[in-house]
């Protein structure tokens, strides 16, 4: 098991966010933590982020964001481009480590462990928190090898039959099995865009993670393929916790239970998806949802 440090030191300085001009927290009954309108907590959190700041070099990309991600819920992160929603998502499985100039402050916990603890190992973390990217990025290998990649490197199965089973289950869950079961040894890059993205989802769930992060998974896909993925996300919710970044408000409304609205690196408002889309409490959220900018 992973070593869990009981007294996790909060990295960096947790600074109180200053609400700049233009932000007007309207509703006074809202529980505003760190300037965020709405309830950032979850009754049954899987991941908790507190006072997260992210810097690219000297530039502050995420400013003091706190948010819970609950078990078996789909949380959607929306906001105009450049608002930091993808950056925040990438913090959740430390994919930002691959960017040299990126620096993360604050505390993010998966279950009980601080994932930015210096003793933490990213390899098992990423096995627990999988990620699906904006552009479908299957490896230039066969469909089977794509899905089997995770189980193989992590040594999840001990024999070929188990591996076959894992691959089949993952493809079944990703809703791709029927389409590819006869051509598992064809190259993954030969599939259509929507199929490729489902293959990438299958690749992620083959490792059996606890959380799946999805970074605009449908932005490169056509409407039919998008609908297929959205259905899939809904089905996957029963077993996984899903955080999805999307620029499409309709998509957020369709697939998520909770929605977080980001603006210029700040988390402006969080709430039940129905509430956010029907009765936004912050003016920026309202402006965005009603299409005044985006």
């Amino acid at each position: 098991m992973l070593s869990i440090t009981p007294d996790t030191v909060v990295l960096g300085t947790a600074r109180k966010s200053v609400i700049t001009a233009g932000f007007s927290p309207v509703a006074d009954d809202a529980r505003a933590i760190n300037g965020t309108v709405g309830d950032i907590t979850s009754a049954d959190p899987r991941m908790t982020a507190r006072n997260v700041n992210v810097y690219y070099g000297d530039k502050l990309a995420i400013n003091n964001v706190s948010l819970d991600i609950g078990v078996n819920e789909v949380i959607a992160m929306i906001g105009p481009s450049g608002c930091g929603k993808s950056t925040f998502l990438r913090c959740l499985n430390r994919m930002n480590d691959t960017i040299d100039i990126c620096r993360v402050e604050g505390e993010i916990r998966l279950d009980d462990q601080d994932i930015y603890d210096s003793g933490l190992d990213v390899v098992p973390l990423r096995a627990q928190v999988g990620m699906v990217f904006q552009k479908p990025n299957p490896f230039p290998k066969s469909i089977y090898d794509n899905v089997a990649y995770g189980p193989r490197i992590h040594g999840l199965t001990s024999n070929k039959n188990d591996l076959d089973e894992v691959v089949e289950q993952a493809l079944l869950k990703a809703g791709l099995w029927d389409e590819v079961k006869d051509r598992l040894d064809e190259v993954g890059t030969g599939l259509s865009g929507g199929q490729q993205q489902r293959l990438c989802i299958a690749r992620t769930i083959a490792v059996a993670p606890e959380v799946i992060l999805m970074d605009e998974p449908c932005s490169a896909l056509d409407p039919i393929a998008t609908a297929r993925i959205e259905e899939l996300i809904d089905e996957l919710r029963e077993q996984y916790t899903i955080a999805i970044v999307t620029h499409s408000m309709q998509q957020a409304a369709r697939v998520s239970q909770r929605t977080a609205y980001f603006h210029l690196g700040e988390l402006v408002e969080v709430g039940k998806t129905d509430d956010i889309f029907t009765t936004p409490r912050h003016r920026l959220t309202e402006d965005y949802i009603t299409g005044r900018f985006g």
Partner: peptide, 11 residues
């Protein structure tokens, strides 16, 4: 994106 995909899965 290839590197990301692999690292994102915990390689």
């Amino acid at each position: 994106s290839m590197r990301d995909a692999s690292l994102g899965i915990g390689a």
